[in-house]
Simulated assay, not measured.
Amino acid sequence: MDLYRFPFDTQNCSITLQSTVYSAEEIQLDVATDKIKILQKSKELFQAQGEWELIDINETKAIMIDWVEADQLIYQITIKRRPVLYVINIMTPVFFFLVLDVISFFIDTSGSDKVSFKVTLLLSISVMLLILNDTLPSTSRRIPLIGVYCSVVFILIGISILETILVNYLMKKGAKKRSTVETAAAVTGKYCVRGQQNPPDSVRDQNEEQSRTLDLLKQILRAATNRNQEKISLSWNAWARIIDVIFSVLYMFAIIVFLSVHTNRWFS
C-alpha cells in the first residue's frame, strides 16, 4: 500500500485470472459483460460502508508467455479511503493545537503560565503522534505526509517553547537588575539620613540653607537612581519585547508557508 498521501490516498489492486494447466489454444478467457455493468454490479455488491470506497474497475486481456502461452484476464480495482474519520480525530486537533500556540503569544510573558501552556500543547501533540503510530500500518516506503505534518507541528511548538523561555529569562534578568538598583538606592538614602540625624559637633549649628542643600542633593540622587533603574529595566524588557514580536511574525509566516506547501503536496 502506498500511504504517502494518507488519509487522502487511493489504492490500486490487481486481480489476475488465468489457467496454469491449459494453454491459450485450449482455454480462452473473455469478459462476460462490459465495464459499466461490471462497475455498477460491483458497487451494489460492495456493501462495506466503512473506510474504503469503490471508485473504478478496469479489465485488460493479456497472454502470458512462459513455458506455454496462456490467456490472462486482469482486473484493476481502484479504491479510495474515506478521510473524514482521520481528519476529525487527528488532523483537526493538531491544527487547533497549532492555532492555540499562536494565540499564546498574546499571554503575558511576565509569568510562567505561558511556558506551562505551551508544554501542555507539546505533550498533546506527543499523544497524537502515538495514536498516529498505532493507526498507520508498517511501511518501508516514504514517510506519510500526515506523519510529516504532525512532526513539523511538534517541532514548531518546541521552538516556540524555547523562545518563550528566552523571553522569560530576559524579563527576569531585567527585574533582577532593577531590584539590585533599588537596594543600592535604599542603602544610599539610609546612609544620607543617618548622616543628617547624627551630624558631627562642628556642623550641628548650621543654618537652614545647608539643610535645604542636603535635601536637594538627596532628591538629585534619588532621581538619578530611579532614572538608572528605569533605563536598565526598560533595556532588558525592550529586548524581550523585540524578540517576542519578531519571533511571532516569523512563526506565523513559517506556519502559513508550511501549511500551503504541505496542502499542495497532499492534494497534487
Rank of each mutant, 00 (worst) to 15 (best):
70 A>Q: 04
39 L>P: 01
67 W>L: 06
94 V>W: 02
29 L>G: 02
58 N>E: 11
43 K>P: 12
46 F>Q: 07
48 A>R: 00
14 S>G: 13
60 T>V: 15
56 D>H: 11
80 K>L: 03
69 E>N: 09
98 L>H: 02
29 L>H: 01
76 Q>Y: 05
99 V>F: 05
91 M>F: 05
49 Q>N: 08
81 R>I: 10
49 Q>T: 07
22 Y>I: 04
96 F>G: 01
24 A>H: 04
91 M>S: 04
37 K>P: 09
44 E>A: 10
100 L>Q: 15
54 L>Y: 05
65 I>L: 06
89 N>H: 01
51 E>S: 13
53 E>A: 08
29 L>P: 01
93 P>K: 00
89 N>V: 03
31 V>W: 14
70 A>G: 00
22 Y>D: 07
19 S>P: 00
93 P>F: 06
106 F>E: 08
61 K>M: 04
37 K>N: 13
61 K>F: 02
41 K>D: 14
37 K>W: 11
42 S>C: 09
87 V>C: 01
32 A>N: 15
91 M>H: 06
38 I>E: 07
65 I>W: 10
75 Y>R: 03
38 I>R: 11
102 V>G: 10
56 D>P: 12
36 I>Q: 14
103 I>C: 12
13 C>I: 06
14 S>C: 15
20 T>Y: 03
84 V>W: 09
41 K>E: 15
61 K>C: 00
59 E>S: 11
87 V>G: 00
66 D>K: 08
54 L>S: 04
33 T>G: 12
81 R>D: 11
78 T>L: 11
46 F>W: 14
72 Q>G: 00
30 D>Y: 03
89 N>C: 03
84 V>S: 08
87 V>N: 02
72 Q>K: 02
32 A>W: 15
105 F>G: 07
50 G>V: 01
45 L>Y: 12
102 V>E: 09
51 E>L: 14
92 T>E: 14
68 V>W: 09
66 D>I: 09
92 T>V: 14
14 S>E: 15
62 A>S: 10
71 D>T: 08
19 S>T: 08
46 F>I: 03
24 A>W: 06
66 D>A: 09
85 L>C: 11
78 T>A: 13
67 W>I: 05
60 T>W: 13
87 V>E: 01
74 I>K: 10
14 S>R: 15
25 E>T: 00
